[in-house]
Design a protein around this nucleic acid. Sequence first.
RNA 1: GGGGCGGUAGCUCAAUUGGUUAGAGUACCGGCUUGUCACGCCGGUGGUUGCGGGUUCGAUUCCCGUCCGCCUCGCCA
Length: 594
Amino acid sequence: MLKRTHMCGSLRSSHVGQTVTVSGWINTYRDQGRGLLFTDVRDREGLCQVVFDLEQSPAELVTLARTLRREYVIAVTGKVRVRAGGANPKLASGEVEIVAEKLELLNSAEPPPILPDDHDADKIGEETRLKYRYIDLRRPRMQHILRTRSRITKFARDYFSQNGFLEIETPLLIKTTPEGARDFIVPARLHPGKWYALPQSPQLFKQILMVAGCDRYLQICKCLRDEDPRADRQAEFTQIDLEMSFVEREDVMDMMTGFARGLWKELFNYDIGEVPRMSYWEAMERFGIDRPDTRYGLEIRDVSEIAAKTEFGVFKDALAKVKAGRKGVVKAIRVPTPNEKLTRKVLDGYSDFAKTFKAGGIPYTKLGANGFETGVAKFCEPVKAELIEKLGLVPGDVVVFAADHYDIATKTLGELRQKIARDLEIVPEGKWNFLWVVDFPMFDWDDDGKRWVALHHPFTSPNPDQFGILGTDPGGCLSAGYDLVLNGSEIAGGSIRIHDQSVQAKVFELIGLTQEDAKVKFGFLLDALKYGAPPHGGIAFGLDRLVMHIVGTDNIRDVIAFPKTQSGGDLMTEAPGPVDPEQLVETHVRSVVP
RNA sequence: GGGGCGGUAGCUCAAUUGGUUAGAGUACCGGCUUGUCACGCCGGUGGUUGCGGGUUCGAUUCCCGUCCGCCUCGCCA
C-alpha cells in the first residue's frame, strides 16, 4: 500500500515541487475527455485536487483512473504543482494540485445513498443521515463538529488537570435513585428479581470521592435519563462533571468561569469578560425564566396593580386566582416600535402559543399617537398614564400581556419573549452572553403532593446565611446552587453540597422522606457524612449543549456521533431490538408487551 | 400520555376538483469533451406513492387504522 505522507487538506503552495502521497475518498471526479481527468480527494483535513494527465501517463494509470467513482478509497502519489488552471479560492489547498504518478485503488464503493458534500447533504432528511451515519459523518461540517468536541474535552482535561483535578471513573451499574428522572434499568443476573440502574449523573459517587479525600474530581461521563428527548435533549448525554473539596460557592464559580474564559480564548480568541450574576428571582421577574437570554431587551414587568384598576375580566379573574399561597398576576412586555413583522396575524397567533403553557391567551394593544389602539385598548385607556410610565411606552409600541397564576403567567411571557425576539429577528449574532444565576430557592411547593420538592437536588446546601431559616421558612430559604447560562441556555449547573449529616437529614425530612426511607435510599451517603465529610461542591457542564453553542447548531443530534431518534431508536443499528429468549431466562425477566 | 407537521425514484421535491403511461433536478449507467472545480453537452436505466384496510368505474389525492421521522406540552430532582 502506498503510505500517506501528507493530509489532503494540508497541502499548500509551500509543498510545490515535493512528491507526496495522499490517501482518501474520491469526493468528485471531472473527466475532461482524452486529455485530463480531475478528482478531488477528501480526507479528514479537507480536499485536494489530483489531476491525471491522460496523454503523458502510462496506459495502466489511465485505465485505473477512468474507473474511479465517488467514494472510492484510493492512495495516490504525485508531484505538487501550482494549478495550471488557476487557483480555487474555495479550497484551502486550492492553489495547488497533485499530478498523479501512482494510483492505488484501496477499495471501491457502491453509489452512496447520500453524498458527503455539505452542499448536498445539508438538504438531506435526517432519517437518511442517521441511517447512513458513516457517510453523513464524512461531511466536512460533521467532521468539524467532532473535532471541535474533541478539542473541548481535551481543553477540559488539560485545564482541570492543571488545577489539581483527578480524573476518576464512577460505576455505570448503580442502585436506582428514587428522585428525579426515570431510570434506565438493567436486570441483575446474579440477583434474581433485582435491578441495576444506569446513572442519571455521578452525583453521589463524586460527593463520596470528596469524603474519600480525593479533593478534586473530574469525569467526562455519560449520563442517562429515560425521558422523552427534545431538539436539545437526548436520553443519553455527556457531562463534564466536577467536584471540589474545601470550597465555597465563589471558589467553584471562579474555577468554572476560568474554564469558560480559557475555552473561548482557545477556540475563538474571544474574551468573555467578567461574567455577571443574577438572582433566581430577578431572572424570573425580569425574564420569566431561570436561564435568561440577555442578548436583547423585551423585559417583563409586573403590572398587576395597574391591571387591577381596569374593567378587563381576564385581568380581574387572573388577579383573583390563588395557588400555593400565591396570588395571580398580570405581566406585560413592551415590544418597542415594532417593524412590519409583528402583524395582527402574528400577534393573534401568540394566544395559541400561550395556550401550550396553559395560559388563556395573550391580550395585546398598541400605543398610537392619541392613545391605545386595537386589541384590549379600551380597557387599557383608563390607566394609560400609569402603563406608559411603568413600561416606558412611546407611540408605536405594542404591549403584550399574560394574566394568570404566577407560574403560568411568568413562564408564558418568558417563553413568548424568546419567540418574539426570534420572530422579530432581533437576537444579535456573534454575541456570547454568559450569566451566573444564583440564590435559587431550596424548595418548590408541590400543591398536588402537599410537600416541598427540591428545586435542584436534595443534596444541595442552603447558602451559609440561610441555615437559620431552613426549618422555619423552607419556602424562603435560598440554596448555594449556581447555574451558568449562555445566551439563554443552561450550560452548567451545580451547588455547594450538604456535608453535615444533620442538615441532610433535615432536608430529607422537609421533602417528605422518612428516616427509614432516607436510610434505605441514601444510607450510604448519610453514613459517609458521619465519617468526616469535608465541605465540598461541584458542577456539571452539559457537553452536548456546550458544543451546540460553539459550533452553532440547535440540533443536539448534530453534535453526537451516533444519536438516537425521538423514540429512542438508533436508525443505523436498529437498537433497541429483541433479545434471545435465553437471555431473558438467564436474567430472570419475563417480558409482557401490551 | 397530549397537540402539530411530514413520509412519492438512491437523494431533494412536484403532480390542478379523485382521471391518460406518477414528472423534474441530482445521483447512477453509456457516449462526447485538454484546465475543470456544484465542470459541460447528448442519451438512458430507475417507482410496493411508508404499511394495512375502506369508499369509488377509477385513489399519490378522500376516510379509518397503523408504523416511522421531526417540532412541541407534560416530563427532564
